[in-house]
Amino acid sequence: NVERLFIKGLNQRQYDLEKKKQQEEAELKQTKDIELFISQKWQEAEMNCQILLSKLKLKQRKNLNNLTYLIPKIDEDEYMEIKYIIGILFQMYKRDNCENDKLSSVSLSSLDLQIFQFIQSNDIEKIRKYPYLLHSYTNKIYKFLKFSTLRKLQPYIIPSIIRSIIGKRLTNAYGIWSMDDESGGNKVSSGYSLYPSASFFNHSCNPNVINIEKGRKVIFKLLRNIKKDEELCINYDSFINDDFEIRQNVLKEWFFDCLCERCVEEMNLKNTKK
């Protein structure tokens, strides 16, 4: 009976969470001020975490083992997101606590973090297109970080920082790929990483630079000779000979309409035929 009631309780909790998620998605679609709505949900997530922590004694809070029951279940995508966030948080911690350390890796991290601040965030556009992400970010990822991350990183786990880290990743990250022998040598995604300097490349459907991903490194090579004052551009996706409309549809994931030379030429040709 105890086991049956326990399982029933878990199922009921999962049902309640799913119902709350659907309710939030419906509210998001109806809201007139999506930016305010998203900000409120992040603040609610922080308040809920603080309320749960306030019910524990100080000694209990210091031991992560006492918080395991508060940690939400996550899926593979959320796990990847959390890995990425913690990586950034560690870089922030190193920057703020290793000022006297002359290791080049620390100084490079500091430079990357300075550049990181200027990267565009696209969380509002992404959540508008995929409303379910807001629940994932605020009710699962944020709580997971709050209740499972080392104490030294806790000062960085606040809504503004976590939201910024996620938002900057959405349209700026590069995939990390490895070869899978079991699948005949096909590439398998093992996560993603963000290279701040590389995030400033613009897109072109006729790029003059190619990005080659090798493990955790991204190498950029010229595809042709570059003219004076010519902008260096990469292809955000992998299409080469795809139709104009197909390319434009794919690029909507980056929230812009491509007006590169190739697209403008094909668009004019298409309009002429009409």
Results as ranks from 00 to 15, higher is better:
Thr31Arg: 04
Leu232Gly: 09
Leu194Tyr: 00
Asn63Cys: 03
Asp229Val: 02
Met179Arg: 08
Ser199Thr: 04
Asp181Gln: 12
Lys152His: 12
Phe144Leu: 07
Glu27Cys: 05
Lys57Gly: 13
Cys258Pro: 05
Asn97Asp: 12
Phe144Glu: 10
Glu231Asp: 07
Leu232Trp: 01
Leu222Gly: 10
Glu27Trp: 00
Tyr93Ala: 14
Gln248Glu: 14
Tyr174Gln: 12
Ser199Leu: 09
Asn63His: 05
Lys73Gly: 15
Ile88Asn: 09
Glu81Ala: 08
Lys227Gly: 13
Gly167Ile: 05
Pro196Asn: 10
Pro207Thr: 01
Ser160Tyr: 01
Tyr93Gly: 14
Leu170Tyr: 00
Asn100Arg: 04
Ile88Ser: 08
Leu36Lys: 10
Gln50Ala: 11
Glu76Asn: 07
Gln43Ile: 00
Gly9Arg: 05
Gly175Lys: 05
Ile38Asp: 11
Asp101Lys: 03
Asn11Gln: 13
Gln50Ser: 13
Gln114Met: 11
Leu5Glu: 15
Asn97Ile: 03
Lys140Gln: 13
Thr149Cys: 08
Asn268Lys: 06
Val218Ser: 08
Gly87Met: 04
Tyr132Pro: 07
Tyr137Leu: 06
Ser164Lys: 09
Gln50Leu: 11
Leu10Val: 13
Ile119Phe: 01
Ile162Pro: 06
Glu3Asn: 07
Thr68Glu: 11
Lys273Asn: 14
Tyr236Ser: 15
Ile86Pro: 03
Asp237Arg: 04
Asn65Gln: 11
Thr68Pro: 08
Gln43Asn: 14
Glu25His: 01
Cys263Val: 03
Glu18Asn: 10
Asn48Trp: 02
Glu125Trp: 01
Leu17Thr: 09
Gln30Phe: 00
Glu25Lys: 05
Tyr236Ala: 12
Ser104Met: 05
Ile226Gly: 13
Ile234Glu: 13
Cys258Lys: 02
Asn225Gly: 13
Tyr137Ile: 08
Glu253His: 02
Leu5Ala: 13
Phe255Gly: 11
Asp123Gly: 00
Phe239Ser: 15
Ile127Asp: 11
Glu213Leu: 04
Val188His: 02
Tyr79Leu: 15
Met47Cys: 11
Val250Leu: 14
Leu52Arg: 08
Ile176Arg: 03
Ile38Gly: 10
Gln154Val: 03
Lys126Gln: 12
Val188Cys: 07
Asp180Val: 01
Asp242Met: 04
Ile240Tyr: 02
Asp229Pro: 01
Lys94Ser: 15
Asp123Cys: 09
Phe6Leu: 15
Leu5Gln: 15
Glu261Asn: 13
Leu153His: 08
Tyr84Gly: 10
Glu265Lys: 02
Ser199Phe: 02
Glu213Pro: 00
Leu17Cys: 09
Ser109Gln: 10
Cys258Glu: 08
Ser107Gly: 03
Leu56Pro: 07
Lys41Asp: 09
Phe6Cys: 15
Lys57Leu: 07
Gln22Ile: 06
Ile86Ala: 09
Ile158Ala: 08
Gln248Cys: 07
